[in-house]
């Protein structure tokens, strides 16, 4: 280990990477199960996003605190126990706060435990970084995940029910696209968002390359290597 990550300072990127550059859903394609299953309304998406963020924050904070105590050989087992604990806690809390939300999210609260984003963060970040860095990064990741869920949830609720957060947007005569509330709708909307993100990234890259190539040959090679990815 050339650089000791423990001593890295907190930069804006520590927080922002989860929202944009390493967005767990749109870039890393992690946690697809809740992304597809519970985003049929904004409220469900928000509840799921917040629950996941809570588990992410708590479990990664604990992993970060215990990173020197947990032996390498049993780290995954230890992370799983920690994550499962907080998932159970969240399960009880949601059940106590609102029966409606609990029923709407169903088994997907318990399934947060298998959201690979959380274990991935514990392994890749929390186990090597200070508590403060971990908290900032996890919060960014959680917010990024919540935003992604909201992106899907808002489109699906808008098209599937003509409403946002339960308030009708298009009026009474709107014909809802039922399929958007059904599982296939999740796949369609996710695909559309991924397309948008891929396109944004590509055009960004193209601009960068054009700028880099400009001094040598007048920008001729602008988009040449886009498809090489």
């Amino acid at each position: 280990m050339a650089i000791k990550p423990d001593t890295q300072p907190i930069t804006p990127d520590t927080f922002l990477s989860g929202i944009w550059r390493e967005n767990p859903v749109f870039v890393m394609l992690l946690g697809m199960c809740p992304v597809l299953a519970v985003t049929n309304s904004v409220a469900n998406a928000l509840a799921m996003g917040l629950a996941t963020t809570f588990v992410l924050l708590c479990s990664n904070a604990l992993v970060s605190l215990l990173r020197r105590q947990i032996p390498k050989e049993v780290r995954i087992a230890a992370y799983i126990i920690i994550i499962a604990t907080f998932v159970t806690v969240v399960d009880y809390l949601i059940h106590a706060i609102s029966l409606e939300v609990y029923d709407a999210l169903g088994a997907f609260i318990q399934l947060i435990v298998v959201n690979c984003m959380i274990l991935g963060r514990a392994e890749a970040f929390a186990s090597r970084n200070r508590l403060s860095n971990t908290l900032v990064n996890s919060l960014g990741m959680g917010i990024g995940f919540t935003i992604a869920l909201l992106c899907l949830g808002s489109v699906r609720e808008l098209l599937g029910a003509g409403a946002l957060l339960g308030y009708p947007i298009f009026g009474q005569s709107f014909e809802p696209w039922i399929i958007m509330l059904l599982p296939p709708g999740g796949f369609f909307v996710l695909a559309a968002w991924l397309l948008l993100f891929a396109w944004l990234k590509e055009s960004q890259q193209r601009r960068k390359q054009a700028a880099a190539a400009a001094p040598q040959n007048g920008g001729k090679l602008g988009g040449a290597s886009i498809h090489a990815r």
């Binding site: 014909e175 039922i178 399929i179 958007m180 709708g185």
Partner: peptide, 9 residues
């Protein structure tokens, strides 16, 4: 898609 989206119509 139409069957899924507009089952009534």
């Amino acid at each position: 898609f139409a069957q899924g989206a507009f089952p009534g119509a």
